[in-house]
Design a protein around this nucleic acid. Structure first.
Length: 457
RNA sequence: GUCCCCAUCGUCUAGCCCGGUUAGGACACUACCCUUUCACGGUAAGAACCGGGGUUCGAAUCCCCGUGGGGACGCCA
């Protein structure tokens, strides 16, 4: 059996979205699973809508998600060029084959693909005009996911526009033949195009590739498939929001595929080992950003310290958190490691850590009122200020012991000091443990903040 | 309008192919536990086989019809 060759064939006409990423992913997984070749082909035949910016976004997004391509732009290969805009000569050559076989004709300056059969006219309700149809037998599509699908392809269609540019159906099939693509894995929206493509393959006398039409991703709210305009549709957005690519990939794997049983979070190596086309679901899946966020959190929790500090810094750079970036690296690291187990996503980081990097941090009025309403916070604050110079700041447990000792002297508990101390040093009631907070902020800063809070009472 | 695809908790899904399960898991939601806050974590609860026929001793599972959802019907890709 010959080596599997799959391709991801996006057109650079818009932002790279989640549906495209999933199609790319399933192709990539199948290539890796079978030891095949993953080809990236750029379908840029629509000169009006293409842009270099979108092209680069495709490269960047695939790279970010960890889907390297074996052949394609930038890496080359034996079947290039890999941009359709550079393959005109090949299309001319294949068009000649079709012409020689008597399978084309010209009308209104465009070249049509001619189906074989008797012609007749019929009024089309949808298009509100009379069209010419051809009496044909149904085209059979053998789909790896859906099984045998029959579709009537009974109208000639344009393969070269009147401006001389070839059309998607034509170039797509020509390239799949020329690049010896063995499996076509794409969205179900192409299932109705597949009959056109099968007829073209047959007209060229080329073997028809194995098809696998994967289910679509439906938008989270409202009807229809997810489109570029929908909330959460753009890969770029997740990159900007500091999502971990491996979490997004894991989530995407599970949208329309699963290894059977209960496994969800799993390393990509395991997915590659278990992935196969027949296990892909047949029904569309609705996008769920909560589940994605949860997956991201689960991955974030496991990121090794050094990498976490690095991605946290990168994220804060994106957010322009200058105070944090200007801080001492060792201090920055301590703050990030204190935050890692507590946050749900990198997005929370700027607000979550703001008070570590500035004395001018917001104080939550509701929290303040709540804290001040209970017990004798002012007295506790005074005791803390008085005792703080004697505290051992060398570790969280040392600080904990010190606070407990102070509390015991008053016949109180740790919990009587915690809320007011937290409010004083952070202005809020959420965050890392108060002992960690003290240790990382340091005695001087904690003392200053406690005193300032006391003065404001 | 025509054609094609699909149908299990609110959502993602296991189970279906090869009929017999207390129909399992995850996210979300609720309660409790853990706890120095907030999270994490743990436990528990609620929550589904779209409807109708058929085949069968027995149907989520096989067949048909309805309904619902999705897609396609471009000189876009």
């Amino acid at each position: 059996m010959s080596r599997v060759r799959v391709r991801f064939a996006p057109s650079p006409t818009g932002f790279f979205h989640i549906g495209s990423a999933r199609t790319a992913l399933f192709n990539w997984l199948y290539a890796r699973h079978t030891g095949g070749v993953f080809v990236l082909r750029i379908e840029d035949t629509d000169k009006e809508r293409n842009s270099e910016e979108y092209l680069n976004l495709i490269y960047d997004s695939l790279t970010w998600l960890g889907m390297g391509w074996d052949e394609g732009p930038k890496v080359g290969g034996n079947y290039g060029p890999y941009r359709q805009s550079e393959r005109a000569a090949i299309y001319t050559q294949y068009l000649e084959k079709l012409k020689a076989a008597g399978r084309t004709y010209e009308k209104d300056g465009a070249i049509y693909f001619k189906l074989e059969g008797e012609r007749y006219e019929v009024y089309d309700e949808h298009r509100k005009k009379t069209v010419t149809k051809v009496k044909v037998a149904p085209t059979v599509i053998e789909d790896q996911i859906r099984g045998r699908v029959e579709r009537m392809e009974d109208e000639d269609f344009v393969i070269v526009r009147s401006d001389g540019n070839p059309v998607f159906h034509f170039v797509n099939v020509v390239d799949d033949i020329a690049m010896e693509i063995t499996h076509v894995i794409r969205g179900e929206d192409h299932l109705s195009n597949a009959s056109k493509h099968v007829e073209l393959f047959k007209a060229f006398g080329a073997p028809v590739p194995a098809y696998a039409h994967i289910p679509l991703i439906l938008k989270q709210n409202g009807p229809g498939k997810m489109s570029k305009r929908d909330q959460g549709a753009l890969i770029e957005e997740y990159q900007r929001r500091g999502y971990l690519p491996e979490a997004l990939v894991n989530f995407l794997c599970l949208l329309g595929w699963n290894p059977g049983g209960d496994r969800e979070k799993m390393p990509i190596e395991d997915v590659i080992r278990l992935f196969d086309l027949p296990q892909v679901n047949q029904s569309n899946a609705r996008f769920d950003d909560k589940k994605l966020a949860h997956m991201n959190m689960a991955y974030l929790l496991e990121v090794p310290a050094d990498r976490f500090v690095a991605i946290a810094r990168a994220h804060l750079e994106r957010q322009g958190a200058s105070a944090a970036l200007a801080a001492d690296p060792a201090y920055f690291r301590e703050v990030m490691l204190l935050s890692q187990p507590k946050i749900k996503g990198l997005e929370e980081l700027p607000a979550y850590t703001a008070y570590f990097f500035s004395e001018d941090y917001p104080v939550d009025a509701k929290v303040r009122d709540k804290v001040m309403a209970k017990g004798e916070p002012a007295a506790r604050l005074r005791e803390l200020v008085a005792a703080l110079p004697t505290f051992d700041f060398s570790s969280d447990t040392a600080i904990e012991e010190a606070i407990k000792a102070l509390a015991a002297k008053q016949g109180l508990g740790f919990g009587d000091y915690q809320p007011i101390a937290r409010l004083a040093v952070s202005g809020t009631n959420v965050g890392p443990s108060i002992t960690g907070l003290f240790r990382v902020l340091g005695r001087e800063r904690v003392l200053a903040r406690l005193q300032r809070c006391l003065g404001a009472l």
